[in-house]
């Protein structure tokens, strides 16, 4: 891996390209750990009230539309897969292909937002507000913070898309794509845990305990 590529000016000027890459990844992994702690605090509060009001939570979880939740999970998994394909394209220096995969990721993220919007509006129209019960308070809080992270993710991926337009990535330099890819996968993993905990809590259909 010779360093024939010249570094864009003002970019980690005092770090070697490889060292800058590893530093950026180390920083992002540490930042992901703080994100896990952020959601961890919310999961801890959820676990506390899940333990204390076991039956109430089963009852309220039944009112959630688990089909939309499952669909949302698949949408996010696909967007995570698209992101990985984007990162792979960037690693190979194929800026155009990477741009296309990033657009797919953004579109899927908006689909996720759409489904989430439908869910929120139906709940609110049925008079279920964050203050009706702690379960709903935690539901709106956790999914709200998660949606906020997705919005930030969309912004970052769109910025990446602009960079691929300017052919900035090469086999030697694709750090931003991989780093934001890591962030996007974490947001997906958070939803992987959120979905069963919130939607499939008391079981669905025949297995439900209402």
């Amino acid at each position: 891996m010779s360093h024939h590529e010249t570094l864009p000016a003002g970019h980690y000027h005092h770090l070697e390209p490889e060292q800058a890459y590893h530093s950026a990844k180390l920083a992002m992994w540490i930042f992901l750990a703080t994100e896990i702690h952020l959601f961890g605090g919310a999961f801890c509060a959820f676990a506390f009230f899940r333990w204390r009001y076991f039956d109430d939570f089963n009852h309220y979880a039944g009112q959630l539309n688990w089909q939309l939740g499952a669909l949302n999970t698949l949408v996010l998994l696909t967007s995570s897969w698209a992101m990985v394909r984007g990162v792979d394209a960037a690693q190979k220096g194929l800026n155009k292909l990477c741009g296309r995969w990033l657009i797919v990721t953004i579109i899927l993220a908006f689909v996720f937002f759409g489904i989430k919007a439908i869910e929120y509006s139906t709940k609110l129209s049925h008079g279920i507000y964050p203050s009706t019960h702690i379960f709903w308070g935690l539901y709106y809080t956790m999914t709200g913070i998660h949606a906020l992270h997705i919005a930030v993710g969309i912004g970052l991926i769109y910025w990446l898309y602009l960079l691929t337009k300017k052919e900035r990535f090469s086999t030697v330099y694709y750090t931003p794509v991989e780093v934001i890819g890591l962030y996007w996968h974490l947001v997906d993993v958070i939803w992987i845990f959120l979905f069963p905990l919130l939607y499939l809590l008391g079981g669905v259909g025949a297995g439900a305990h209402h």
């Binding site: 703080t34 994100e35 702690h37 952020l38 959601f39 961890g40 605090g41 919310a42 509060a45 009230f49 204390r52 009001y53 507000y129 964050p130 203050s131 019960h133 702690i134 709903w136 308070g137 935690l138 709106y140 809080t141 913070i145």
Partner: peptide, 27 residues
């Protein structure tokens, strides 16, 4: 620090939307 972040966020939402997490009279 992120743990105080989520705690204060929950308190913020408690004050803003009354999610009831820290209010004893709603459990």
């Amino acid at each position: 620090t992120p743990i105080i972040g989520i705690t204060l966020l929950l308190l913020f939402l408690e004050n803003a939307f009354g999610i009831g997490v820290f209010r004893p009279d709603v459990g």
